[in-house]
Design a protein around this nucleic acid. Structure first.
Length: 421
RNA sequence: GGAGACGUCGCAUAGUUCGGCCUAGUGCACCACCCUGCUAAGGUGGAGAGGGGUUUACACUCCUCCGUGGGUUCAAAUCCCACCGUCUCCGCCA
């Protein structure tokens, strides 16, 4: 939900943002109209209601013999109040619907356009080269008996897998390394629910454009989350936070579930795109004026993790049309995947400014004591998908895989993953 | 899954019998000032959330909110219905 105030003060800024996203510009004018319609309807209703309240006291205080006549008048008044209330309620719904469908105004500097129009911010690390024919992660996973896709498919269908042996250990090691990183930076660890109520799912903005990506359990009216961001954002919903002692930062670990409905045929091989994976997610609640600095901080943490894993990557400023409706800016980090000869997304971090918080009703107190929405940001610190880049980047001719130094302590000191015969 | 009890403005509670002086009282905690005088007590005042109007702002004013959503009524914290949640007991249990 955008700030209704900027609709009144600066609708042009919202129009520009909608245009950069390739979204509807006329929606902004509809919203402005709906806002003024709503406000005049509210005024109408409230003055009638005030009249009714005052009249009610007269009725209550009147002597018995005068009551019937007064009640008759009150009935007439009541009918008018009811009608005005209905008009106001309808106007409110209309306003909320229109305003709710306007995306978060992008931050200056975000490139306009779609998926291909991102801005490349930097490329870091050397792309791995091999003096042998490199194997892809599926093949390596089989040699190491680390990834069992055949059995995953047998048990649960396509896009499912087992991590086994060293594969399972590697994922836990990665998650632990990420958790230690988060702890060192002052994040509070949380293990979050992965089933959430509809209002939380809607509040985080996932029921909009991502609706068909989400698993839903009709018998219980619950949604399976595709990221712990949902629970982390819902964690403080309907609360007034104390940010005087600093930002609130959480590191949420959870399994994530995605239907991948729109991606049939895409990334079919391996574990690059799956229905279920694990993720450690950072989530920050900060003062609105600190949001952009926090965003830079989250990217820095992500980069330090990728560097610790010895990966080559690039950081991109995602184009407006490729942002979710809640994000005002998003940085993706894509790691180089040798056998694909391409960069693939390993992390994503979004600055949702006050958009998400306004919808979830998460506020703080300003110096004057007024409440106003906080800013929220989220970003990946590690996911199962990283195994793809790690295995492929550090593979050796004999099928073994060198373990990045930073990861070794989490694997009992193991420095090389050897094929299992 | 079954039965019962309950849900009030930070916390604790009054109010629900029998709808209308509830514009929701009180205590604790909180803030300002006063008095006292020394890690305290007392006094006075202030202080919830959301939204309109009017304001540069302060202030003022109106409406809404008693778990949520409906309903009955001229009028609902109070009556009715549904839902959500908490607690107690029973049942079941990876």
């Amino acid at each position: 939900m955008i700030d209704p105030q900027i609709l009144r003060d600066n609708p042009q800024a919202v129009r520009k943002s909608q245009e950069a996203r390739g979204a509807s510009v006329s929606l902004v004018d509809d919203a402005v109209a709906a806002d003024s319609a709503r406000r005049s309807a509210i005024g109408e209703f409230e003055s009638l209601r005030a009249e009714q309240n005052a009249f009610g006291k007269t009725v209550a205080a009147a002597p018995k013999e005068e009551k019937p006549a007064l009640v008759a008048q009150a009935q007439e008044l009541s009918a008018r109040v009811k009608a005005a209330q209905q008009v106001a309620a309808d106007a409110e719904v209309e306003f909320t619907t229109i305003v709710g469908s306007i995306a978060n105004p992008i931050i200056d500097g975000v490139p306009a356009g779609g998926e291909e129009d991102f801005t490349l911010l930097r490329e870091v690390g050397e792309k791995a080269t091999f003096d042998f024919e490199p194997r892809d992660h599926v093949e390596i996973g089989e040699l190491l008996k680390a990834i069992d896709i055949t059995r995953g498919t047998k048990v649960s269908g396509s896009r499912f897998y087992f991590l086994s042996g060293i594969g399972a250990r590697l994922e836990i090691a990665l998650m632990n390394m990420a958790l230690d990183k988060a702890l060192a930076e002052g994040f509070i660890p949380l293990i979050t629910p992965t089933l959430v109520r509809p209002e939380i799912m809607a509040g985080t903005g996932f029921l909009g454009e991502h609706a068909d990506e989400i698993y839903y359990l009709p018998a219980d009216d619950l949604y399976l989350t595709g990221t712990s961001e949902v629970a982390l954002a819902g964690f403080h919903s309907d609360e007034i936070l104390d940010l005087e002692k600093g930002s609130l930062r959480y590191a949420g670990w959870s399994t994530c579930y995605r239907r991948e409905a729109g991606s049939a045929g895409k990334d079919n091989r391996g574990i690059l795109r799956v229905h279920q994976f694990n993720k450690l997610e950072m989530f920050s609640y900060v003062l609105p004026e600190d949001a952009e600095a926090e965003h830079e901080r989250l990217v820095a943490y992500q980069e330090s993790m990728l560097q610790a894993c010895g990966l080559s990557y690039r950081v991109i400023d995602v184009a407006a049309g490729d942002l979710g409706s809640s994000a005002a800016r998003k940085f993706d980090i894509e790691a180089w995947v040798p056998t694909q000869g391409a960069y693939r997304e390993l992390t994503s971090t979004s600055n949702c400014t006050t958009y998400q918080a306004r919808r979830l009703d998460i506020r703080y107190r300003t110096e004057s004591g007024k409440t106003t929405p906080v800013a929220t940001l989220n970003g990946t610190l590690a996911t199962t998908r990283w195994l793809v880049a790690i295995l492929e980047t550090h593979q050796q001719a004999d099928g073994s895989v060198r373990v990045p130094e930073a990861l070794r302590p989490y694997l009992g000191g193991l420095s090389v993953l050897e094929p299992v015969r």
